[in-house]
């Protein structure tokens, strides 16, 4: 091929999109921002609800089915990191009311502040639980 001079020759990029692509992109961006806002409303509540709910599920699973060879759902959940759980919750329609629905004390669960106040844990105990379940909780937020 004959020598080209890019400084003098302007060659366009060959990429293409459909004619209405940017009209649709704009509305999809707006949709994602709206979805992100909804998550911002729900996530702090879920963050508080998730940890104690998992502890309750794990405790029930441990007491009721202590000697099963197959891992229980609570054991499987306990193997997940908090970020994996939060990622899952972000992309499902589950909300705090669904979680409360499977809890033995839904009213308590939905009222995050009272629930936390009612948990009487020393810092060492809390650290131990967090280590045990690989939970990455920002203590300062408590």
């Amino acid at each position: 091929m004959k020598k080209i001079n890019l400084e003098k020759q302007k060659i366009a990029a060959p990429f293409q999109v459909s004619e209405d692509y940017f009209d649709k992109l704009e509305s999809r961006i707006q949709d994602r921002v709206r979805g992100d806002r909804k998550r911002e409303v729900y996530l702090p509540v879920l963050k508080w609800a998730t940890v104690p709910t998992l502890l309750v599920i794990f405790a029930i699973g441990y007491l009721i089915i202590p000697n099963q060879e197959n891992p229980s759902s609570s054991e499987l959940i306990a193997q997940l990191s908090s970020s994996e759980i939060l990622d899952y919750l972000e992309y499902t329609d589950i909300n705090e009311y669904d979680i409360a629905g499977i809890s033995g004390s839904p009213d308590l669960l939905l009222d995050g502040e009272d629930m936390i106040e009612n948990i009487d844990l020393e810092n060492n105990d809390l650290d131990q639980i967090l280590d045990q379940f690989d939970l990455e909780l920002n203590i300062e937020e408590i």
């Binding site: 091929m1 080209i4 060659i11 366009a12 990029a13 060959p14 990429f15 293409q16 999109v17």
Partner: peptide, 18 residues
């Protein structure tokens, strides 16, 4: 992906440049 041609137009020189 350029060779596959999905969403790629242009002539030979444009493809070569990419």
């Amino acid at each position: 992906k350029i060779d596959a041609g999905d969403g790629i137009g242009g002539d030979e020189i444009q493809i070569k440049l990419q």
